[in-house]
Amino acid sequence: MTAGSVDTWPDPKGVPRAPILVLGLGNLLLSDDAAGLHLHAALLAECGATEQVEFVDGGTQGLALLHYLANRRAVLVLDAVGLGAEPGSVHVLRGPAIDGLRVARSTTAHEGNALELLATARLLGDDAGEIVVVGVEPAHIGTGIGLSPQVTAGLPAAMERARAVLESMLRG
């Protein structure tokens, strides 16, 4: 297989893959399902991509995103996370909390999408040492562009948490 082409793709003479990935997930056309994408755009605008951090808007692509997860030291996933809390609440999930979600909560806003992605990466040995999910509890998931007032109100707090996680990842 094409070993060695991963880190600098698509340019063989390009820069190596950034050790930290910020991955936004969600469907832009399903209102609050896109909460993670809004967070992702805001964090990108504020921090910008560097040699240390790559930002990827993953949409709802599932397993087609596996190669973005490979060879990272840390991954920050931004997403809508439905745990039955008050809409607009911010969830920060790490390690065991993510694993617990995988088994007990298979009907989150993501229907196994993000969780399946992370589980498959683990099976392949591609899971980063540190994986953190920062998510916002959705109020409404249905056809439409734009967030509900509850989720919009929750974004500043979510941004604060996401920023803190990213800063901690950067300190390594």
Binding site: M1, S5, P10, L63, H67, A70, T120, L124
Partner: peptide, 14 residues
């Protein structure tokens, strides 16, 4: 197959 699909999809990035 999973390992392979991580590679082939890079054609899209080109």
């Amino acid at each position: 197959a999973l390992k392979w699909q991580k590679e082939v999809i890079k054609i899209h990035t080109v």
